[in-house]
């Protein structure tokens, strides 16, 4: 019942909200890039390299946001056996992995001129690498089973176990003595960042979120279409025709 009603409703809803997300994302992206690359001041220590922040920090936010969505979708899929939730998790994984790769690569490019090294195995960086492997493991489990239901179950369990890593990433900079700096935005009291830098950072954050959501809707359409193809092939093979 809801198995077939929901995808149709979801597709309608997704078509309806897509233009609105786009209408927010594009101006934020353009304004964020302009303010970040042109208007924002240089850091007195880091000079121009601080501009890497505007593509690095929002990517790390999306890497964490993506994993949280993945875990919530997995929990809903496991508890209520909601097929759309399983597909949402499956759709979110490569996007989250992509943003994790952006965070790691841009962080490395930022680390070289500021820390003097491309890479260091400190707690923050290592826990983000673990996050990337959680995403990849989740995707591998989806592909490791013939039956989608069993694949969803295995992948969802991994996703839920991996939640432990999220607070480790978040608090790694406080718990351990890391080379990575602690949070500047979400600390108690006022943010330790100049408004002229905070503005492009938040604009890029909204733009990244919009891009994430657009990609998620698109990937869910892909997953639904692939599922319909599988259903058609199955129906055909039951009719005794070669598929």
């Amino acid at each position: 019942m809801h198995r077939f009603a929901n995808p149709a409703r979801f597709l309608r809803l997704s078509r309806a909200i897509q233009p609105w997300i786009l209408a927010v994302t594009v101006p934020c992206l353009l304004a964020g890039l302009y303010l970040g690359l042109v208007e924002s001041p240089i850091d007195y220590q880091q000079k121009d390299t601080v501009r890497i922040m505007y593509v690095h920090v929002p990517a790390a936010w999306m890497a964490m946001f993506g994993y949280s969505s993945l875990a919530i979708a997995s929990a809903i899929g496991l508890i209520w056996k909601h097929p759309l939730a399983d597909l949402a998790g499956k759709a979110a994984a490569p996007i989250g992995a992509g943003f994790t790769i952006i965070a790691l690569a841009t962080g490395s490019l930022w680390g070289k001129p500021t820390w003097g090294t491309w890479w260091v195995w400190d707690a923050r960086l290592t826990s983000v690498v673990v996050l990337l492997f959680l995403y990849l493991g989740y995707m591998a489990l989806w592909n490791a089973f013939e039956q989608p239901q069993r694949a969803a179950r295995a992948a969802s369990i991994l996703a839920l176990v991996g939640i432990v890593n999220l607070p480790i990433i978040k608090f790694s900079v406080d718990w351990w003595n890391t080379l990575h700096q602690p949070a500047s935005i979400s600390r108690i009291g006022t943010p330790a960042i100049d408004p002229a830098m905070l503005r492009p950072l938040l604009l890029m954050g909204v733009a990244y979120l919009g891009l994430f959501l657009l990609l998620l809707l698109l990937r869910m359409r892909v997953e639904l279409a692939e599922r319909r193809v599988m259903a058609l092939q199955l129906a055909r093979s039951r009719d005794g025709e070669p598929s």
Partner: peptide, 26 residues
């Protein structure tokens, strides 16, 4: 970019490239 072009532009390029690849692949 104040002499840091070799770090800043690749960072923006990678971000744009990964997101573009995700859209094209999907």
């Amino acid at each position: 970019m104040g002499g840091y072009a070799a770090y800043i532009w690749p960072a923006y390029g990678i971000a744009a490239g990964v997101i573009a690849c995700l859209f094209i692949w999907s």
